[in-house]
């Protein structure tokens, strides 16, 4: 993982994704959607070379295609009739609508792939701590228990297998029963042991007062610069959104693309915003290339 965007202040990272996702959900203008898609794919590539993207993309594409294909089948809105399927009119508008929304869903899903790479659980909890300290704490504890319980489950299953209770060719009902036996052992054992955890928490002063946090991310100069870029471009996006510069009408008749100066200004701001992390990662990449070539 490259130390570019990911090392930005967690609040800024989170704000970036919040605005990006909101834009994915709210902007249906085809130029915006396509640019967002390009931006997100490049972001994914710059983050981990597209490994995470590759894992999920097949399923996501299938979902998008289903939406694209099914919308015209359900909906006959729109003025331009292209033909009939099962006596139902298929309109150009409903196809366009399906395509736009399939694209916007794909954008959301892929943006989450990048989100998961950048906003690690630690960052998420850091963000949550000031707002909901106890919730953040309980999530941390649960996170700690999950690998512990998984290991215990495996140990219990080893014992069951050796006692001859679990065999690979058993029928479904039997497997379900034995699976539950595994959970019985796990739950009674783990809840019993958690009493000790409670003692250990109290012994170290849990609950005697307000907790503080040992993690701090002060904003550095780069963070402040990015913050202002985000504020300026973000404000522009919001203002443009409120005035409807980037509205795109599908119904009743598909609108043709109109390029007004406002739309250009707005689009450029949006582009700058979307490409912030890519520029940061790219800069880092270049830096390392020059360092390496000088060595």
């Amino acid at each position: 993982m490259i130390h570019g965007f990911s090392t930005l202040h967690p609040r800024l990272c989170f704000a970036y994704f919040a605005v990006l996702l909101l834009a994915c959900m709210m902007y249906t203008h085809p130029v915006y959607s396509v640019l967002t898609l390009i931006g997100i794919v490049v972001l994914n590539l710059s983050l981990d070379g597209g490994r995470a993207l590759k894992k999920g993309i097949k399923g996501y594409l299938i979902i998008a295609i289903i939406i694209f294909v099914s919308n015209p089948l359900f909906s006959s809105r729109g003025a331009t009739i292209l033909g009939y399927v099962f006596d139902r009119p298929i309109t150009l508008e409903s196809i366009a609508y399906g395509a736009l929304f399939a694209l916007s869903l794909l954008n959301i899903l892929l943006a989450f792939v990048a989100y998961n790479l950048v906003i690690t659980p630690e960052k998420l909890l850091y963000l949550l701590t000031p707002i909901a300290p106890r919730t953040a704490f309980i999530i941390t504890v649960t996170l700690r228990f999950v690998p512990l319980l998984t290991r215990r489950l495996k140990q219990i299953m080893t014992v069951q297998r050796v006692l001859g209770y679990l065999h690979p060719r058993a029928n479904k009902r039997h497997l379900m029963r034995e699976g539950m036996e595994t959970l019985h052992t796990l739950i009674s054992w783990s809840l019993e042991e958690a009493l000790q955890t409670a003692s250990s928490m109290r012994a170290r002063g849990y609950g005697i007062g307000k907790r503080t946090s040992s993690v701090s991310y002060p904003m550095d100069r780069r963070d402040i610069l990015v913050f202002w870029i985000m504020v300026v471009t973000g404000a522009n996006i919001v203002i443009g959104g409120l005035f409807g510069v980037n509205r795109f009408q599908v119904y009743p008749r598909l609108q043709s693309l109109e390029w007004s100066p406002q739309l250009w200004l707005h689009l450029i701001c949006y582009l700058i915003f979307v490409f912030i992390p890519i520029v940061m990662n790219g800069k880092e990449e270049l830096l390392w290339r020059t360092i390496k070539s000088k060595m």
Partner: peptide, 21 residues
């Protein structure tokens, strides 16, 4: 295993201090 509350070494080391503010 039973007495560890937090998810990472760092968090566990500071757990008590965080409790005491």
């Amino acid at each position: 295993d039973n007495q560890i509350v937090m998810n990472t070494v760092w968090q566990e080391l500071t757990f008590a201090m965080e409790n005491l503010g």
